[in-house]
Design a protein around this nucleic acid. Structure first.
Lengths: 256, 256
DNA sequence: TTCTTGGCTTGATTCAGGTCAATGTGGCGT
DNA sequence: ACGCCACATTGACCTGAATCAAGCCAAGAA
């Protein structure tokens, strides 16, 4: 795993190969500047005052990982919490025999470390080159103790996450393969909307295998159904994503 | 829906038919006495000092609902939060066409209302006669604002719930019917342990249909596999539950 | 340029679990 | 005692998605 570190207090701390700096986070100075963070409004940090952001700056380290590199691994001590600022991340659990369940995908603005447990409940690796704001769990926990409104916000994010997980339980337990694909595309469209605005173009940084492992299907089934939806003019498959043609139909299929 | 109310401040507030008072909560006085609550150690309230419990007493109302009665319904305003003190509750989501996903079962000590949303994410109804401690969401929210350590506790419960939901995603997405049943029985055994101590007898207050709707299976499949596990001497089916004979085998099947 | 590799698609076949249809069974109200 | 009803079980059959097996294609490596 190669991670490049950029930190105000210790810019010589870089280890491993540097990843190219991504377009979304073009700070050439090796500083964290929460006040100007472009995902701030989407993230936990939105709960903070400007004065508090200065404190946060001091705690934060920005990290960059390349595609396919690991952020953290299931069952390892969770020493850090992360705020994704650019890129996309796959979150998954492995069974001993290799079966895999993807429990979610993280996009810019998403927070990893809601869980308050000292072991990671799942592994996380980057789907595309990814930047994140990283805090030590200790610093973070102390900061939380001092800022009850931040804790409120954290709790409301965890509640929201729980609610999404329950929706996913409905999808996995009670929906057909076609409905799962439709729900996935509509759900992802809605999440990209927060980041990029509402477009019929839905980027899919993950592979078909990842989608299958998220939806409880095989690659082949995902591929067949995407092809079928395309044949029936509900979507168009484009490089690195899909374009939604018949949003109404997809929403009807996805309806909860 | 019939609910009997018993409250210190307003014992005349009873409406509807009274349910018989349950064995586990035999207060004949219509008062809430958190300090002596038998599920306190299991519940949120464990985070509170004795002095704070007195405040809680004043906010709380105990309610009793009979089997099959509704505590609250999906998409309705969530005006109350609940602490289950006796009985068992089914939590579920309905699709428009009637398909159902049970998202969980609540046992004594479980808290309903982690979610901080003003609409219920799911419906809840009693499987067996059930007692709960009920708080208005407003009172509760104000109380939380004044007690950051209670909020911490609430958040850690929500985190735990999220982690369980992710485990359930693995079960629904990537496990065989037999593994699902084993995981369900072992998981339920572990939860009853908190309430009753560790026994090989696992009460099943829910129907086979409920289990199927929790595990993404049909009644018939649940019935067949329970019968098979019984035939193979892994369990014995007894009235209102099962007795685990070969715990090691079940744990191997359930392994995460 | 050709070779390799990883991801994607497509077709043929299989099978785990669903569906449909009886039948069994225990509790409850009359 | 009787009938009812909800729940549970069991059997026969069906099907949606998995599995197995090729190919296809684009991006890198040699």
């Amino acid at each position: 795993m190669e991670i490049s570190l950029r930190k105000k207090a210790d810019s010589a701390a870089s280890k491993g190969l540097d990843q190219p700096v991504l377009a979304l986070c073009p700070n050439s100075k090796a500083t964290v500047d929460c006040a100007r963070c472009r995902v701030r409004a989407l993230s936990l940090c939105d709960a903070l005052e400007d004065s508090e952001l200065v404190e946060l700056d001091r705690m934060a380290t920005t990290i960059s990982v390349g595609a396919k590199e690991t952020l953290f691994e299931q069952d390892q001590p969770s020493d850090w919490v992360y705020n994704i600022t650019a890129g996309s991340v796959r979150l998954y659990k492995l069974l001993p025999d290799g079966r895999r369940q993807v429990v979610g995908f993280a996009l810019p603005g998403d927070f990893l470390g809601l869980s308050m447990s000292h072991k990671n409940a799942f592994s996380a690796d980057a789907l595309t080159p990814t930047n994140a704001c990283r805090f030590s769990r200790n610093d973070y926990s102390n900061f939380l103790d001092a800022k009850p409104h931040l804790l409120r916000r954290l709790h409301s994010m965890a509640s929201h996450e729980l609610s999404l997980a329950q929706d996913q339980m409905v999808i996995l337990g009670r929906r057909t393969a076609e409905e799962r694909i439709a729900a996935f595309l509509i759900g992802l469209r809605n999440r990209w909307t927060r980041v990029n605005g509402n477009h019929v173009h839905v980027p899919l940084p993950m592979t078909r295998q990842d989608i299958g492992d998220f939806l409880g299907l095989t690659v082949e089934t995902v591929s067949r159904l995407m092809t079928r939806l395309a044949r029936e003019k509900a979507i168009v498959i484009v490089p690195d994503g899909v374009r939604l043609l018949d949003v109404a139909r997809l929403e009807r299929l996805a309806e909860i």
